[in-house]
Lab assay of single mutants.
Amino acid sequence: SYYEILDVPRSASADDIKKAYRRKALQWHPDKNPDNKEFAEKKFKEVAEAYEVLSDKHKREIYDR
């Protein structure tokens, strides 16, 4: 789930989600993982997609249904 990707509970606040996104984006940024760039790019995209949905109140409500 998007919550698992960002490592936050379903009850996470918008601020918690933003902090988790920043932490995970740094962790999986391809430039930070030169030895495993392809895998890092995949993870980085997953993190971005999760944040896009969970950071938008309307999209998150739909996702949580």
Rank of each mutant, 00 (worst) to 15 (best):
W28P: 01
D7T: 03
K32W: 12
S13Y: 03
D35I: 08
L6E: 00
P9F: 04
Y21G: 03
Y3Q: 00
K42M: 10
K19P: 02
I62E: 15
N33D: 05
D35F: 13
H29E: 09
S13D: 09
S13W: 02
K24L: 15
V47G: 01
R22G: 12
K43G: 02
S13G: 07
K42I: 14
F39E: 13
N36H: 09
A40C: 08
K32S: 15
Y2W: 11
K43M: 15
P30W: 04
E49W: 08
I5L: 10
S13A: 06
Y3M: 00
A48L: 15
K19Y: 07
Y51A: 03
A40P: 02
A50S: 04
E49T: 08
Y51M: 04
R65K: 14
A14D: 14
E52P: 01
K24N: 04
F44S: 10
E4G: 06
A48K: 14
K45C: 11
D35Q: 12
S55E: 04
Y3F: 02
N33K: 04
V53F: 07
D16F: 06
Y21I: 03
R23G: 07
A40D: 03
K18W: 13
L26V: 08
L26M: 14
K37H: 08
F39N: 07
R60Y: 02
H58E: 13
D15G: 10
E61I: 07
K45R: 13
H58I: 14
D64Q: 02
E41C: 11
N33W: 15
N33R: 04
Y63W: 03
A25F: 15
R10M: 13
K18M: 14
A12K: 02
I5G: 01
D16R: 06
V47K: 00
L54I: 03
E38T: 10
K37L: 14
K43R: 13
S13C: 07
S1W: 11
L26C: 13
K45L: 12
K19I: 13
K59S: 08
D15R: 10
A12G: 05
K37I: 12
R10W: 10
P34Q: 13
R65Q: 14
S55F: 08
L26I: 12
H58Y: 13
V8S: 02
S13F: 04
E41M: 11
D31M: 10
R23T: 14
H58W: 12
E52K: 08
L54E: 00
S55P: 00
E38G: 08
R23V: 15
A50C: 01
D31P: 03
K32T: 11
F39Y: 15
K57L: 11
R60E: 03
Y51K: 01
F39H: 10
E41D: 10
P9Y: 05
K45E: 09
S55I: 11
A14F: 15
K32Y: 14
V8L: 12
D64C: 03
S1A: 08
S11D: 15
H29R: 08
W28L: 05
A20I: 01
F39A: 15
E49K: 11
D31I: 10
Y63S: 03
A20Y: 01
K43F: 08
A40R: 06
I5P: 01
P9T: 07
V8N: 00
V8Y: 00
K59R: 14
S1H: 10
S13H: 06
L6Y: 01
A20K: 02
K37C: 06
K18T: 14
D31F: 05
K57N: 12
D15F: 06
D15W: 07
N33H: 15
A48W: 14
I17P: 01
Y51P: 01
I17A: 01
E46N: 04
F39R: 06
A14L: 15
Y51E: 02
K42T: 10
Y51F: 13
A20M: 03
K59C: 09
K18E: 15
A25S: 14
A48Y: 13
K43N: 07
R22Y: 15
D16L: 07
Y21E: 02
D16A: 11
Y51R: 01
E52D: 12
K59W: 06
E46R: 05
K42R: 12
E41S: 12
R10D: 06
E52F: 11
K37T: 11
E49V: 07
K57D: 12
P9M: 07
R10K: 13
S11G: 12
E61V: 06
R60P: 02
L26Y: 10
K24Y: 05
K45N: 11
D64G: 02
K57S: 13
E61S: 08
I17Q: 00
V53L: 04
R60V: 02
K42F: 10
E49D: 11
I5A: 06
K57V: 14
I17E: 00
K32L: 15
A48H: 13
K19W: 08
A50I: 02
K37W: 07
S1G: 14
K45Y: 08
P34C: 09
K37S: 08
E61Y: 10
N36W: 08
K45D: 06
K19S: 14
S1C: 14
E49M: 10
A12S: 06
Y63I: 03
A12L: 01
S1N: 14
V53Q: 05
F44H: 06
D15I: 10
S11T: 15
E41Q: 11
K45H: 11
E52V: 06
A25H: 12
K24E: 05
S11V: 06
V53S: 03
Y3K: 00
L6P: 01
R60H: 03
R10T: 12
H29A: 11
K18I: 13
W28A: 02
V47D: 00
L54R: 00
E4D: 13
F39G: 06
L6S: 00
R22W: 15
Y21T: 03
K32C: 14
K42N: 09
K24H: 05
V47I: 15
K19L: 12
F39C: 10
E38Y: 07
W28Y: 12
K59N: 06
Y21M: 05
D64M: 02
N33Q: 06
K59I: 04
S1F: 10
P9D: 12
L26Q: 15
S13V: 04
I17V: 07
E41V: 10
Y21S: 03
V47C: 10
E46V: 04
A14G: 09
D7N: 10
N36F: 08
R65E: 11
D56P: 01
K37M: 12
R10S: 11
Y51S: 02
Y63G: 03
S55C: 06
E38A: 14
R60K: 11
K18G: 09
E46K: 06
K43T: 06
K57R: 13
D35T: 12
E46Q: 12
I5C: 06
D31N: 09
V8K: 01
E4V: 10
P30C: 05
V53H: 07
L6M: 05
R65H: 10
D56L: 02
D35Y: 09
E4A: 10
D31T: 10
D16T: 09
I62L: 12
P9G: 09
R65L: 11
Y51G: 03
A50N: 01
D64S: 02
D64R: 01
Y3G: 00
H29Y: 07
D15T: 10
K42A: 13
R23Y: 08
Y51Q: 01
V8P: 00
A40G: 04
L54T: 02
V47E: 01
D16K: 06
D7S: 10
E4F: 07
F44D: 03
A48N: 14
L26S: 13
Y21W: 09
R23K: 15
P34I: 12
K32E: 11
I17N: 00
Q27N: 04
V8E: 01
R60D: 02
P9H: 09
D15V: 08
K43H: 07
A20L: 02
A40Y: 09
R60A: 02
E49N: 08
D35C: 11
R60I: 02
K42D: 07
Q27E: 13
S11I: 07
E41R: 10
Q27G: 03
A48P: 00
D7Q: 10
K32H: 15
R22K: 15
E38I: 12
N36Y: 05
Y63M: 03
L6R: 00
E4Q: 12
D64E: 04
E4I: 08
L26G: 10
S55Q: 07
E52L: 11
P30K: 05
N33T: 05
F39V: 11
E61P: 04
L26E: 15
F44L: 14
E4T: 09
S13I: 04
V47T: 04
L54W: 01
D35K: 09
D64T: 03
L26F: 09
Y2N: 02
S11K: 08
Y51T: 02
K57H: 10
E61A: 12
A25R: 14
E4Y: 08
W28T: 03
R60F: 02
K57G: 10
Y2A: 04
I5H: 04
S1D: 15
H29P: 02
R22D: 15
Y63Q: 03
R60G: 03
A40F: 09
V53P: 01
R60L: 02
D16V: 07
A25K: 10
D64W: 01
R60S: 02
H29L: 11
D15K: 12
A25Y: 15
K59G: 04
E38L: 11
I5D: 04
R23W: 07
D35P: 05
Y63L: 04
E46P: 02
L26W: 10
Y21K: 03
D16S: 06
D56K: 04
